[in-house]
């Protein structure tokens, strides 16, 4: 079998690392938050610009940024650098309240960073996957606010929003014809209409809907729906003739949560259409309707 012989004169770690193919180094850099990846420019001339061409970019809030201006300047440089580019497959923008230094003036970020504009600029980089995570930020500031979100991108296939507040009239993805997968978590949906002609998979976890009005979902291509309501009124589902699987659960604080005392009712069974004061189950009716068509 094997008789491993030890290597002859070994080149230094630095030489070996510098000799790695570009896509291997990109793989490594993709695993680092952008502000850490930028530090690898100190390694060698070859590395100076490698980090800027890594196929996935993660921007995270972090202790160590001296102030909001520096942070925003960094984000701005990154966005300018990748504008209209084709190398970036995914962008992750992750701000967490706890990432920031307590002395970091978060208001400077909120005053100067408009999240909708930020998303538009990220999409101008032709990204396929966009993840925007704003953990625990919503209660303190307006950064999480996305009024009348209308995105336009020929490249976006997956969108993930965490901790955002969408309000206004629409959540409109008709400008994103390639969008097939979307996930919203711990977010607030306060819009009249949520529409996408291409969306196939939608996951909404711990989402808050408006208590006064129902959001209309116009998602005709949807195949898989997972809806987990935290509060508010469950949405009105338009025709979904391709729907194959749907899981719906309502938290007890939901306006539609069932208060009947049936032991077998899990709270979502008697999802009422109170606009018409009709106690029939609108959600299940819609669901069975789509099954019947399929």
């Amino acid at each position: 079998m094997s008789s491993p012989r030890r290597a002859r004169s070994t080149p230094s770690g630095a030489d070996q690392l510098s000799a790695l193919p570009e896509d291997v180094i990109h793989h490594v850099l993709s695993l680092l938050p952008a502000h850490e990846a930028v530090r690898t420019c100190v390694l060698a001339r070859r590395w100076r610009h490698l980090w800027t061409s890594a196929p996935s970019i993660r921007v995270t809030g972090v202790k160590g940024w001296p102030d909001a201006d520096r942070f925003l300047c960094f984000v701005d440089r990154l966005l300018t650098l990748h504008r209209g580019g084709s190398t970036v497959l995914s962008w992750e923008f992750h701000l967490d309240e706890t990432d920031f230094d307590p002395f970091f003036n978060i208001c400077n970020v909120t005053g100067k960073c408009h999240t909708s504009r930020l998303m538009e600029r990220i999409l101008e980089c032709n990204v396929g996957t966009l993840r925007l995570c704003l953990n625990n930020m919503a209660p303190m500031i307006g950064i999480a606010l996305l009024p009348d979100l209308i995105l336009v991108s020929q490249h976006l296939t997956m969108l993930e929003l965490h901790g955002v507040i969408t309000n206004g009239r629409v959540l409109d993805f008709s400008g994103c014809p390639m969008l097939v997968k979307m996930k919203m978590e711990s977010s607030c949906i306060d819009v009249k209409e949520f529409s996408s002609a291409s969306l196939k998979q939608l996951i909404m976890v711990d989402c808050q809907f408006c208590k006064e009005k129902r959001t209309r979902f116009s998602l005709p291509s949807l195949v898989s729906l997972e809806l987990n309501l935290y509060t508010g009124r469950a949405p009105l589902l338009g025709s979904m003739s391709s729907l194959e699987t749907a899981t719906v659960s309502l938290n007890s604080q939901c306006a539609d949560s069932c208060e009947c005392e049936d032991d077998y009712c899990d709270g979502s069974g008697c999802y009422k259409d109170s606009d018409n004061d009709d106690k029939s189950c609108v959600l299940l009716k819609a669901y069975f309707f789509t099954i019947a068509i399929a």
Binding site: A14, L17, V24, V28, L32, R39, L43
Partner: peptide, 24 residues
């Protein structure tokens, strides 16, 4: 292995990165 190298870089200052990865 990519994750291992990324972990060697993570959380370090530029100088520490150089030293960890064996750059003079």
């Amino acid at each position: 292995v990519a994750k291992k190298v990324a972990d060697m870089i993570k959380g370090k200052s530029p100088m520490e990165i150089r030293r960890t990865l064996g750059f003079p």
